[in-house]
Write a protein that binds this DNA or RNA. Structure first.
Lengths: 103, 103
DNA sequence: CTACTATAGCGCATTGTTGCGCAACTCTGC
DNA sequence: GCAGAGTTGCGCAACAATGCGCTATAGTAG
């Protein structure tokens, strides 16, 4: 089996391994947004936000469309959203397990 | 929207953000394995491998079943495998994009 | 054309987090 | 007691995240 393939997968997962970036993806799942729209939603330095977006662009999850000074972001691979359903399954199962242990 | 939910998701993604751990998941997708079976497959210290497995157990992706001194590992949430299909979609799209840029 | 503002990204320094191997440890079965 | 299977503590090196300030480009007003 190909090692590079696993590394490529890992890079994609890594890009999604931050709450902030997941929130960005969630926001973009509801439509195109520009950086200036995202900034008020995230209580952080704009350069930090820009870097998070860049991380998502780097692995191809998000694409940009420039319009003058603005830069509209779009979710390039919406199947990412299915991933979240699965993760929620993992999380729910885990919560159930913890509840059992607590008994 | 709930911040904790995003953090929980991020934790799951983080657990999957390492090539080694993806390879472990891939191996477990073909059936139960014990640590001693995994060790020859991974050219690393067994403590390191143990920690990778622990990371997967912590988020509920992998479960263990002890049998004597051995510890059999099982993929608890196989829907993770669907995630990989999506990531491969992302990767292929990205490869195509790179090919275009190269032209 | 120039000056000014808004949008976005980059370089640097700091801080925090991971991954790793080594060694020491627990637990099981002989 | 001893060997095999796994886990944990520790220290080091590499990496990631953040804030600050600076640059580049687009658009606009004069």
């Amino acid at each position: 089996m190909n090692t590079e393939e696993f590394q490529a997968r890992a890079r994609v997962m890594k890009a999604l391994s931050s709450p902030v970036r997941l929130m960005i993806v969630d926001e973009l799942s509801r439509g195109e947004r520009c950086m200036c729209e995202l900034q008020p939603m995230f209580p952080m330095n704009k350069s930090t936000l820009s870097r998070h977006v860049t991380a998502l662009k780097n692995v191809g999850i998000v694409s940009e469309r420039r319009k003058g000074a603005r830069c509209f972001l779009k979710l390039e691979t919406p199947c990412i959203l299915n991933v979240f359903e699965c993760t929620m399954g993992v999380i729910r199962a885990e919560a159930k397990r913890h509840a059992k242990l607590a008994k």
